[in-house]
Write a protein that binds this DNA or RNA. Sequence first.
DNA 1: CGGATTTTTTTGTATGTACTAAATTGATAG
DNA 2: CTATCAATTTAGTACATACAAAAAAATCCG
Lengths: 240, 240
Amino acid sequence: MTAPLPNGGLTAPAEDCLKAVYELERAGAGAPVTTNDLAHRLTLAAASVTGMVKRLAGQGLIDHARYHGVRLTEQGRRTALRTLRRHRVIETYLVSVLGFGWDTVHAEAERLEHSASDELVDRMAAALGDPAVDPHGAPIPTRDGGIVEGPAGRALSELAPGEHGRIARVEDDDAARLRYLDSLGIRPGVEFELLERAPFGGPLTVRVEGAPRQIGPQLAAHVVVIQPSEHSLRIGGAEH
Amino acid sequence: MTAPLPNGGLTAPAEDCLKAVYELERAGAGAPVTTNDLAHRLTLAAASVTGMVKRLAGQGLIDHARYHGVRLTEQGRRTALRTLRRHRVIETYLVSVLGFGWDTVHAEAERLEHSASDELVDRMAAALGDPAVDPHGAPIPTRDGGIVEGPAGRALSELAPGEHGRIARVEDDDAARLRYLDSLGIRPGVEFELLERAPFGGPLTVRVEGAPRQIGPQLAAHVVVIQPSEHSLRIGGAEH
DNA sequence: CGGATTTTTTTGTATGTACTAAATTGATAG
DNA sequence: CTATCAATTTAGTACATACAAAAAAATCCG
């Protein structure tokens, strides 16, 4: 009796690893996820990842081609999405019901996602009316393993001056960075307009809630926005 | 980065062990808690307990006299009570807010108590109006480390026919046994009268909610009752 | 008091998670 | 095509948790 292991019988590090593979696969457009990518994401030595990956491959949750990275199996994807659902429902519950700030819930959810049962999470979700997105704008997987990965918004950092829209999602887990963004008024649901971009990777100036704000391009890269429609006014080449 | 370890930096098994020492000390009227007692309580081999006890003693949480059992230090007591508070607040929240049955919450709380932060638990407690007891009638330690261990009720199994009162607490964690008691109408807060006791350790007949119910003495030993006052009518020797 | 029994600890083993350092494989550039 | 460099895996170590079997200590009883 080492640990309780409520849901699929996986340990917390194993669930974290699957979640990381899922997220890196998504970010990398389906390319295999390398050991180094996982090590960085999990703040682990590469050798530790190799060991974990072997165990998970042995359980049929990922396919591992030596020296060439890993891919989730169908079973691994389902498992990762269940963990992700627990994480995001918990975050939403903490913010909506218990009054936590959206910048502080990640760490708490990161622990609770491994010990909360699916039943508890389903009750939380029901109490919230089965929300579709969490406080960061990330989609919440459904009980049956589905997920709608949003309408493929663009990063704030990719827009050209004059473009405007609504902030859909902030893809960052660090409390300090989120608190900073929040202090600028940059949070999911807020309307904005990009006023200007300083050259050579300089800061962007964004109007949010009536006020002009400056934000660095690295931070802005994690802010996903949606625009009113396809006839948005594009001035200048914003691709990069 | 093996595990998150939210509160005192203790692992889940270590917290469970401290909690068990606390509970066994209480049940044993302060006598030192033996390795075997702990092994039974934790469903562990005695050898495993010895190892855990050494680590905890090294951290100053318990005093360990080889071959003579352990005692919580003041620091250990505080730590145990914080874990106990988390457990009981979580149980109460699950029952009162999320609609779990009082018979099923123990297992869920047993896991969550190790990953929920004190801040989360304080918010849950506040949402409940800082309740004094959990769904089983057990007292909830306060934020500052205090606990009021109830008015020292008597076990239902110790009463004599004709005695009556109110069920204060059910000291059992097993879901099946709790569900059975619940089906008999035996739960905290319910008024009762002991109608008769079969001889030679036979079943007790108890009137609860107007209906006569039979209950074995082992189960009844875990039902703590309080009586109207000290001039309760005692008929016959009820001791033992 | 001293042997028998019980309890506890020690010893040795296993697993999962982590690390560092060394070896290996793959990719790249000349 | 090979030397080099980066990425990855292997090897060896450590710690916490668990176990069973053996040894040691305490207790009990005649």
